[in-house]
């Protein structure tokens, strides 16, 4: 058990403890605080037994780039929401559903996950199937399958996961 694994275990323990405090609301009773600490430590022990204590358990080194990505995603969600609601509530409903394949995905698993989840989170596009090098996307309107938009979102989600497609050194700094 190396030093990196112990750091991950401690960060998981702190997260569990903060979650327990927020959900229970007991701050003063030492007995209950002890029980909370015990249950948090037991969860970390179970995670260790399950062999899932790896870098994915504590994704804290990407948190700044994720916080930069989130406002842009919220803006996109609001824009597409208004389009979808207007389409659905108009009396003469005109739909142009499309099924497209999006290629040129980000490389790392985390960046791919963020990209596919972002596609699904913006209403009007849903990622249906994912393969090693493409995502099949269903879109409600044909204006939503512009390849430049997908490329932009892929580049942004790659940056959010700490992966920089152009210069590899800059992404590690944050």
């Amino acid at each position: 058990m190396g030093a990196a694994k112990i750091a991950i275990a401690v960060s998981l323990l702190i997260t569990m403890g903060v979650l327990w405090l927020a959900l229970s609301g007991h701050f003063h009773d030492p007995l209950l605080l002890g029980f909370g600490l015990f249950s948090a430590a037991f969860c970390v022990f179970l995670a260790w037994r399950l062999h899932i204590l790896d870098a994915e358990t504590s994704p804290y080194h990407h948190i700044i780039s994720l916080l930069v990505y989130l406002p842009w995603l919220m803006g996109e969600i609001i824009k597409t929401n208004i389009i979808v609601v207007r389409t659905v509530l108009s009396p003469d409903m005109i739909l142009t559903p499309r099924l497209v394949r999006v290629k040129h995905l980000p490389r790392t698993d985390l960046a791919r996950t963020i990209f596919a989840n972002s596609i699904t989170l913006t209403p009007g596009t849903v990622s249906i199937d994912m393969d090693a090098d493409e995502i099949i996307v269903h879109a409600l309107l044909k204006e939503m399958v512009n390849p430049a938009d997908f490329a932009n979102m892929a580049a942004r989600s790659a940056r959010a996961a700490g992966e920089n497609p152009i210069t590899t050194d800059e992404g590690k700094a944050s």
């Binding site: 969600i77 929401n81 609601v85 699904t120 989170l121 913006t122 209403p123 009007g124 849903v126 269903h138």
Partner: peptide, 10 residues
């Protein structure tokens, strides 16, 4: 699916 997404997000 798209209409259900409106509820889930916004």
């Amino acid at each position: 699916l798209h209409a259900a997404g409106v509820t889930d997000t916004m």
